[in-house]
C-alpha cells in the first residue's frame, strides 16, 4: 500500500457527514448573514453610494462577502474537524492507523475546503437574487475560490492542532481573521482610503484575496491580479510549512 486512499475517503466522508448532520445551520446561517449584509450595506448604505468604479455598490460587495465567509468557514471547519477528535480522545485511532500525515491533511483540509466552497456558492446564488452579477473570469473566480478555501482550511487545521481549548479555537478567527477581513476592503475599495491607511492596508493579506476575487467578477482590482495571486500562494506556502513542521515534530499530537 503506497497511498491509503480508502483512509482518505473514509475521513473525508466522515467530515462531510458531520456537516450533513448540521445541514440546517451550515446552510441557513450563511444565507441569512448574506441577506442581512445586503439589507444593511446594499440597500440602506448602498443607496447613497451608488457605484464604485462603475459597479453598483450592491454588486461590488458580493466578492468581499463571499471571501469573508470563505475565510471564516474554512478556518472554522478545519480547526473544529481536527480539534474535536483531540478533545474527545478519538484521535488515538487516527494516530494508530496506517495513514501518513499527508493523507490526514488531504482528507481534513479537502473536506473543510469542500464545505466552505459549497457555502460560498450558496452565497453567490443568494446574492444573485438581490443584484445583477456578472462574472468576467469564471475560471479565475473558481481558482481564487479553491486556492483561498484550501489555504485557509490549512490555516484552520494549524489552529485546530495548536488550540488546547474551545476558547483558543475561537481566538484567532475572532481577534485576527474577522478584523483583517473587515479591514481588507470587503465593503469598499482601498483606493477610497487616505494614502496612509491605504499603505497600511497593503500589509493586510486579506486585501489581496478580496482584490483578486473581485477582479474575477468585475475585471478591476485594488492591486494587480498577479500580486494577489502571488500573495495567496505565499500564504498557502506558509500554511503548508506550518503543517509540515507540526507533523515532523508531532507537535500537540504525539507525546
Amino acid at each position: 500500500m503506497i497511498v491509503n486512499h480508502r483512509a482518505v475517503a473514509s475521513i473525508y466522508r466522515f467530515e462531510m457527514a458531520r456537516a450533513w448532520r448540521t445541514v440546517m445551520q451550515s446552510v441557513i446561517s450563511p444565507v441569512l448573514s448574506t441577506s442581512l449584509y445586503f439589507v444593511v450595506f446594499g440597500a440602506a448604505i448602498g443607496s447613497r453610494i451608488q457605484s464604485i468604479e462603475g459597479v453598483q455598490y450592491g454588486a461590488y460587495i458580493v466578492p468581499g462577502l463571499i471571501m469573508l465567509s470563505l475565510l471564516t468557514q474554512s478556518i472554522a471547519n478545519a480547526s473544529f474537524g481536527i480539534y474535536f477528535p483531540r478533545f474527545a480522545g478519538t484521535i488515538y485511532e487516527l494516530l494508530s492507523a496506517p495513514v501518513s500525515f499527508v493523507e490526514v491533511v488531504v482528507a481534513y483540509v479537502g473536506a473543510a475546503a469542500t464545505k466552505s466552497i459549497i457555502i460560498g456558492l450558496i452565497m453567490l446564488a443568494t446574492a444573485a437574487m438581490f443584484v445583477d452579477l456578472e462574472i468576467r473570469h469564471p475560471v479565475w473566480m473558481v481558482a481564487f475560490l479553491l486556492l483561498t478555501a484550501v489555504t485557509f482550511s490549512l490555516f484552520g487545521f494549524i489552529i485546530g492542532i495548536w488550540a488546547d481549548g474551545f476558547e483558543k479555537l475561537q481566538l484567532v478567527p475572532l481577534l485576527i481573521v474577522t478584523p483583517l477581513t473587515f479591514l481588507g476592503g470587503a465593503f469598499y475599495s482601498i483606493d477610497m482610503l487616505p494614502p496612509f491607511w491605504r499603505a497600511v492596508s497593503l500589509f493586510n493579506p486579506v486585501v489581496y484575496l478580496v482584490s483578486g476575487f473581485r477582479w474575477s467578477f468585475f475585471g478591476q482590482s485594488d492591486v494587480s491580479v498577479g500580486v494577489s495571486l502571488a500573495m495567496t500562494f505565499l500564504f498557502l506556502a506558509l500554511c503548508l510549512a506550518g503543517v509540515w513542521w507540526i507533523f515532523k515534530t508531532g507537535y500537540r499530537l504525539k507525546a
Partner: peptide
C-alpha cells in the same frame, strides 16, 4: 483503548465502517 473515547454523534454502523476504511480495508 482504556478510555471510552467514541464519536458520540455517529451511529454504531458508521463508526465501525469508518475504522475499517481508515485501516485501508
Amino acid at each position: 483503548p482504556q478510555e471510552l473515547t467514541t464519536d458520540s454523534f455517529e451511529s454504531v454502523w458508521a463508526t465501525v465502517s469508518f475504522s475499517r476504511g481508515l485501516f485501508g480495508r
